[in-house]
Design a protein around this nucleic acid. Sequence first.
DNA 1: GCGGATGTTTTTAACGTTCAAACCCCGTGG
DNA 2: CCACGGGGTTTGAACGTTAAAAACATCCGC
Lengths: 335, 335
Amino acid sequence: MATLKQVAAHAEVSVQTVSNALNAPHRLRPDTLERVNRSIELLNYRPNRNARSLRTSAVELIGYCVPSWPNQTHLVMDQFLHALCAAAERTGRHILLFTAPGGVDGMPTYDDLHARRLVDGFVLSQTETHDPRHGWLKQQGIPFVSFGRVWKETTQPGAWVDVDGAAGSATAVRHLYETGRRRIAFLGWPKSSGLAEDRANGWRDTCQDLGLPTAGLAVRCREDTIEEGAHATARLLDADGAVDGIVALSDILALGALRELTRRGLTPGRDVGVTGFDDSPLAEVVSPGLTSLRQPMDQIAEELITILTGGPAETAPAGRLLQPELVIRGSSAPG
Amino acid sequence: MATLKQVAAHAEVSVQTVSNALNAPHRLRPDTLERVNRSIELLNYRPNRNARSLRTSAVELIGYCVPSWPNQTHLVMDQFLHALCAAAERTGRHILLFTAPGGVDGMPTYDDLHARRLVDGFVLSQTETHDPRHGWLKQQGIPFVSFGRVWKETTQPGAWVDVDGAAGSATAVRHLYETGRRRIAFLGWPKSSGLAEDRANGWRDTCQDLGLPTAGLAVRCREDTIEEGAHATARLLDADGAVDGIVALSDILALGALRELTRRGLTPGRDVGVTGFDDSPLAEVVSPGLTSLRQPMDQIAEELITILTGGPAETAPAGRLLQPELVIRGSSAPG
DNA sequence: GCGGATGTTTTTAACGTTCAAACCCCGTGG
DNA sequence: CCACGGGGTTTGAACGTTAAAAACATCCGC
């Protein structure tokens, strides 16, 4: 494994000159640069990242805590991780995975990784209602950025990127409206979840703007399962006044809606328009295809990395709210 | 940020003694050790991993290439990553994520990560039929271990861990047999996939052992979608001779089967027993619950890490075949 | 009372890189 | 003719750690 020293000897220059050839090529005379580059190529030299990190005290690694999965089905995690990795790599960085207990119990793990210089900073996700991590990291002066707002807090420590759930629901409602739906229901979760509230608000406000009814059209499911989605849909269908559109807060709930409709001999897309959230792999794989609000993963990842790695001069706004994109499939085909 | 030198000064010993206190405490006199440990604690010292890695030329990081997701829906990736992380951490290591082009085009990326000392070795997954990575890495002398065999090769370079698909199907068939099913079909993929063949063989052999028919009971789906699974099930149900059990090669196909059964007024679990593969989050979330073959993720991860990090003395067998576990749910409830 | 064995601690020298300062050379202007 | 400036290059030191060897202390048996 070639080192700077060997390259320097081969090119008959000093070690520092080779270092400059890589980090500040403009400092070299063109012919020297050329000669050094040839030696680098010839010896197949690759800088040792550990030595570099030791000297510069920057490891170019970003920590990400893998959510413990029984917690919540995170069907789009692979998309997110892929996008995050790709974005990090575009800046010469990489993602380091780790596990940690939830809440404040996990903080020593974060602290340790930073103190031992395994990572420069963190990307947080799976943000919870009173997530203690943001404040703690901020207080320790450890760099981080959050995917997701800490809901119900007026001000949240540190920078964040999030997807506009209210706007997402609004788009879904408008899409259903444009395809002729006039009684559009909302399948949600309990009010305790900030994310659920955000999406519910978008639905309610847009319905009201369009002059559509909302009374009795919001159903809260206890769990994020197909079963619950189906039950909730059944309740909607059994109630007075037909429902011809359903905005579900998750693809799983939407799947439940599709199942219940089909079971009753109704055709999703023709008789009732259904939309989901997140555009998980399921949306594509289910029949007749589930219209869903796709999170702009690449853009999210890009923003996260930019904010996290942008120098301190980067006095960016505290947060960045991105718009989901409605991917239209059979479940909302014009009736 | 405290360094060894500062701790040494505080404890009034040499730097090396502090290092020994951490790496070889048995070498210290108990009272010295006690004193040094107090200083470490007091100054909240954490060893700098970069300096250590530079000296020992071992980074304690394991590379894992995030599969590019459009490729294949990998519904259990989060489970796998979590298990892998946890297993790595038990040995003081961590997982570094990266992206790379598929096949041989990705090899420079692997090489680079290793040459720059970002990782000590790799865990490969998403193994493909003629996966070039194994041979390439072996030839370069880069440590790795594979989750998944390179199918249809008599000998595969390097060590691997895999789940016994044939045994999985066999378990599923026997379970369906024990709950009274006598015409058990198989929902698979084309023969080109080694994984598919493995699972198909287990089904066929076990049916024959039990004296059950197999002729006309194996259906190949072109894609891994719910739609395809439903179509295939429809074909089975339309053919001569009733089908009362279905072993599907994936949870997605199994979901298709459930849908088609329900559509025809049949009750999964009562009229027809259905099993899937992988125990993805869907299996739990669908109604009436999908019986599925769970990959022993924790054990897989543990074996992968053990093989990869076990010293060279570890002349372990080239491969390790683990048994999947049948998780029984409503879709195969005794009829 | 001395050679040797054993146990504990310190010294020295790296690991491969980058930063800061010094140095050299050459052209320019006074 | 010399001081000055600046591009290009080298020198020296440092980042924080560990391996190996050296030094020191203690104890034992003869």
